[in-house]
Design a protein around this nucleic acid. Sequence first.
RNA 1: GGCGCGGUAGCUCAGGUGGUUAGAGCGUUGGAUUCAUAACCCAAAGGUCGGGGGUUCAACUCCCCCCCGCGCUACCA
Length: 699
Amino acid sequence: MKKFARTTVTAALPYANGPLHIGHIAGAYLPADTYVRYMRLKGEDVIFVCGSDEHGVAITLGAKKEGVSPKIFVDKYHNLMKQAFQDFGISFDIYSRTSNPVHYETAQEFFRTIYDQGIFLEEVSDQYYDEQEKLFLADRYIIGTCPNCGHTGAYGDQCEKCGTSLSPKQLINPRSTVSGQTPVLKLTKHWYFPLDKYEGWLREWVIEGHQDDWKVNVYGQCKSWIEQGLQPRSITRDLEWGVPVPLSDAQGKVLYVWFDAPIGYISATKELLPEGWEKYWKAPDTRLIHFIGKDNIVFHCIIFPAILKAAGDYILPDNVPANEFLNLEGDKISTSRNHAVWLHEYLHDFPGRRDELRYMLTSISPETKDADFTWKDYQQKVNSELVAILGNFVNRVMVLSWKYFEGKVPAAASLDETSEKRKSIHAAHGKASEEINTSIREMIDALETFRFREAQFQFMNLSRVGNKFLADTEPWKQAKEDPEAVAFILNFALQVVMTIGEAGKPFLPDACQAIQKQLNAASLEQASVGFWKDKSVLNLLPAGHALGQPELLYRNVEDELISKQMEKLKKPEQTSPAVVEESQATLKPLKPTVTIDDFAKLDIRIGKVLHAERMEKSNKLLKLTVDTGIDQRIILSGIAQHYTPEEMIGREVTLIANLAPRKMMGIESQGMILTAEEPDGKLKLLQTASDAKAGSTIS
RNA sequence: GGCGCGGUAGCUCAGGUGGUUAGAGCGUUGGAUUCAUAACCCAAAGGUCGGGGGUUCAACUCCCCCCCGCGCUACCA
């Protein structure tokens, strides 16, 4: 494996349009934080950068809805997220934001550097334009009916109901969210990044270069993207809010958010180290790691690397440990439905219990598949693992030490094997040391390879072994007859507690601090650093060392607390934390007035369906043969999810007979079947009250 | 629809170049114990390894088909 001199760790820039929830934390920030804490303990040169992603149309849209400027809008969520991260103890070296001047400069410099090499393509295309507002509508400003699921509130870039990515032109009945008007198509110029030109290079770098060290989910998706052929991607938008395109002929244009956001990692580093940032992004012996969620894989593994490559002399990610998603109580986490556990609310409702959430989220970390957070599980994990195994072990060692040795570390005199009991104590000690050393090695091995769930499990093993050691040696039974044996046992047990206090730092920083306080071991901190290299049980507490007072590390989580949280989830509307709600759009606004002449242009008729079959490779389209009275023709209709071919045959339909033919999926459709769309997106065929003859006209 | 990843004990997950009784933690049940936050320790019960075919002396592990979940991506006059 390549030897690196330093490491740059990034965690996905959270989008500044809502508060953070546990899904964000489990997906990227907690694993990243655990990893970084580990690296620091090892004495590595590492920086941990993150910040708010504050551009893009969702922000402008959200701001408009709240009736504030984008700046005020992002300030609010940036501060909320920054505070929540800090309160939770995510140990960023810097938490920046993409509205900072240094980010504007950096992003523009990237653009210029690539532009000057003549890499970008320029293309004029038609885009939706709101004539009333005199504004090109970015994808998010357009709402319409999702062609995939029929949801009437789908955005121009994505339907939030079914999750399908869309382009505005695919929307049925598009309308501007700014004015409610139907937008028109208008020409505008944009710059494109020719991803396709990097295909060969990506193939070599990803497919051949990272087959073995990237997670299968990451590798698999990259591979499929590359092999399907890459397309140029537009990198500019007509918008006011964002990083202006640094060209004289680009008035009113900004960089598209996906282009500017990942550059935010670099600008954050610049802000952190104005003089020394470059080596963290350009030195070949720097290791770059991106922690992200699975929805971000192609951006971090294909698009951003290609941009870095185009800009020249930047390093590329060495690994991108993307996590899957976290569900909540069996359901997807949803901001708009307020089905979420918000980080700031957790911190408020569970004061002093940061470690508990860290522990829980790491132990169910969605590393290989989607995971499910349940409150019952949370309670169980805290009570039967943190309290009963770790907390209890530390506590009983402390209590025993005070009881038998007045809070002083007993001397571990070499114990001759003069009795059966002593022999068994030696055996237990040998076995425990060995198991602890094994677990430490496995823990570190897992940390190195981003398997944090496993790493934390191995860490917990230290306490399991400790508990068993006490049960095997039973110091409380030796107290009277063999004080030396008790000293031997407790000395070791205390060293194990010390070891736990060190080994747990990447996972449970608060508890580890508490352990070191109880051991009164602050002065031994420096000496413990070697642990991460030696990978074996510590032996640092000197005989006679005065211990602090025992204190419980964790308390049981009571049922009441859990049921309160469950209640909260059941009443979504009540506790909504200033989330951008998208609740209109159940009924569409009235369209502009038309004249009778406009209407008369349409030839609307009754037809009879003679034939109906599914279109191959389409889950939306039915291919209908319709008798219109004057002819028989093929009409494709997007109703396959609402009607089966069988129930269509023989049916009366209403159609527009003089609509210009249009090819779909390789077949020409000669007309359009009329349907009524209900607010929930269901389609219903329009039919006359009684069977009308085919060919009847409608007026 | 295409592509990617996943579907193993009640829960969270390991595992396997195909080969004796499929593992761990937690939960459950029983026992032992009292230093400890009714904690710890020991033991047991619990699985037709998503479904169906196939290859093989032998499949949970390989092949094919299907179903379910999530992500990416498309058609929708």
